[in-house]
Amino acid sequence: MQTVNIHDAKTHLSRLIERAAKGESFIIAKAGKPMVRVVPLDRPAISEARRLGFMSGQFTVPDDFDRMGGDEIEQLFGSGE
C-alpha cells in the first residue's frame, strides 16, 4: 500500500481520489507517521473480508497433525537436553 505525505496528497488530491475510486487504497502520512487510510467506499470492510470458518467442511486435518514431522524435527534440533 502506497504512503503519501500530506503535502503531496493536497497537491494531487484529484488524482488520488480517482485511484481510490478504481479500488486502490493508500495511506496519508504527516512527517512520516501514518495518519489515515483512504479506501474506496465499495470495498468490503476488513472485518467483513476475514471470515472465520469460511472453508468449513472443505478439507480435513489429520488426527496426528500436531505430531507430523516430529522425528525429523528432533533430528534437526535434538531432544532439548
Rank of each mutant, 00 (worst) to 15 (best):
Q2H: 09
G53K: 06
K33P: 01
P34V: 03
I46N: 00
P40F: 04
A29K: 02
V38R: 01
R51V: 11
L13T: 12
A31P: 00
K30P: 01
D63P: 13
V4M: 02
L41S: 12
P62F: 02
G57S: 05
Q58P: 03
L76G: 09
V61K: 07
A20P: 00
T60N: 11
F65P: 01
A20M: 03
F54V: 11
I17L: 14
G80S: 07
N5H: 04
A20S: 08
H12T: 09
K22R: 15
N5M: 05
R50E: 10
S47F: 03
I28A: 05
T3A: 11
E24L: 00
D63A: 09
E24P: 01
P40G: 11
T11C: 00
R15K: 14
D66L: 12
M68H: 08
G69R: 02
E18Y: 00
I17C: 07
D71E: 15
G23V: 02
F26L: 15
K30M: 12
D64H: 03
A29M: 03
R43D: 03
F77A: 05
R67W: 01
D64Q: 05
A49H: 05
L13D: 07
T11E: 11
S47E: 08
E48R: 05
I17H: 08
I17A: 13
G70Y: 10
R50H: 14
I6A: 08
I17F: 04
G32T: 01
S56T: 13
H12G: 07
F65N: 07
E74C: 10
H7S: 11
V36T: 00
A29P: 01
R67G: 04
V36G: 01
D63N: 13
S25E: 11
Q2F: 05
R43Q: 13
R67E: 14
E81W: 09
F59T: 07
A45K: 13
S14R: 15
G78Y: 01
A9I: 01
A49Q: 12
L41G: 05
T60Q: 06
R15L: 15
A21R: 10
F77P: 03
K30F: 08
A29W: 00
